[in-house]
């Protein structure tokens, strides 16, 4: 029997309650925004070490960017055209004392006070690789580059599904180079990611996927992204067998960022890019779901791979 939306919602709420009960997620009063327990963080830390070991042969440059991005860079990515519904824009107060008093009065009166704010020069990072591209403008070295990234990202999609957080971490390996290098990177990492997840006892499979592009025009973006087989997701049952959750994805951007940020491969052509992104919170959620709330009692093979 097909699972109804109501059943799915119930399953998500039940798993969220279980995670909160176990202390792994600490609710904040806002849907999709949680604190994490030490145990939860430990699982992520150990998982990341597995990824690092598996990626050691890539000689990746390690770069870490904050979860906030230059507004100018953001404007160069076309995210506002394709996924405006997920944006987080950072605003602050730059007014006078009189305006300040008015704002505070409005707030205490329970009225809208945010009209007194003005946009800052930054927005929340929507994907871990965005801050990298403007730093890569110019010509890549012979052989291109591989960059290892991790940061928190923000997506405004409040939900009671514990696997749909508004703020979560992506660990990425990004390839910048020729079209062939970009595609090879994506395919190689889908293979490696499947192996990693299976070695942890997760019931995963790969699927052709699309990004959640906005609106009527987004239909076309979704269709052509699928048609060109650009994005693959590794999905794993978390709160539903029927609708498994994407826990890792591997995406070829063609020359999208190469054009936007004038990145060229050593042969002078516009560079192509691709990335694999591990959704660290979702992977932890899949592990807790599959093996139970207490990592001390996880199967010994899984504990051994994670070096717990």
């Amino acid at each position: 029997m097909a699972e109804s939306d109501g059943q799915l919602e119930k399953a998500r709420a039940a798993y969220l309650a279980e995670l909160i009960e176990a202390g792994h997620l600490i609710p904040s009063g806002v849907r999709g925004l949680y604190g994490r327990s030490g145990t939860f963080e430990g699982v992520i830390e150990h998982f990341e070490r597995v990824v690092t070991r598996r990626g050691a042969d890539q000689n990746a440059e390690v770069m870490r960017f904050p979860p906030i991005l230059s507004r100018r860079t953001y404007e160069g990515t076309d995210h506002i055209e394709t996924m405006p519904q997920l944006l987080g824009s950072v605003h602050s107060f730059t007014g006078t004392e009189a305006e300040h008093a008015g704002m505070v009065t409005s707030m205490h009166a329970g009225e809208d006070w945010t009209g007194s704010l003005t946009p800052t020069e930054v927005v929340m990072v929507p994907a871990a690789c965005y801050p990298l591209y403007p730093t890569a403008t110019g010509t890549l070295p012979e052989g291109g580059r591989v960059v290892d990234l991790r940061t928190f990202v923000f997506r405004h999609e409040p939900s009671d599904d514990p696997a749909r957080m508004q703020v979560f971490r992506q660990r990425e390996y990004v390839r910048l180079g020729t079209p062939q290098q970009a595609v090879e990177h994506r395919d190689e990492w889908i293979r490696r990611a499947l192996e990693i997840h299976r070695s942890l006892g997760l019931n995963v499979r790969e699927e052709v996927a699309n990004d959640p592009f906005f609106g009527r025009g987004g239909r076309m973006m979704k269709a052509t992204q699928r048609e060109q087989d650009l994005k693959y997701e590794i999905v794993c049952p978390i709160t539903s067998e029927e609708k498994p959750t994407a826990i890792t994805s591997s995406n070829c951007h063609l020359d999208h960022f190469g054009v936007a940020f004038d990145i060229r491969s050593a042969d002078g052509e516009v560079a192509h890019t691709s990335c694999v992104g591990f959704g660290l919170e979702r992977i932890a959620l899949a592990l807790f779901r599959t093996h139970g709330m207490d990592p001390d009692r996880w199967p010994s093979e899984v504990r051994s791979v994670l070096e717990l």
Partner: peptide
């Protein structure tokens, strides 16, 4: 490009007052 295709799709739909079904949304 894919982004221009989106603008084009919307403009053609508006101009001819039609809606492209999913099976026509391809390169």
């Amino acid at each position: 490009t894919s982004l221009i295709t989106v603008n084009l799709l919307l403009a053609i739909e508006d101009h001819f007052d039609v809606e492209f079904p999913d099976e026509l949304l391809s390169r």
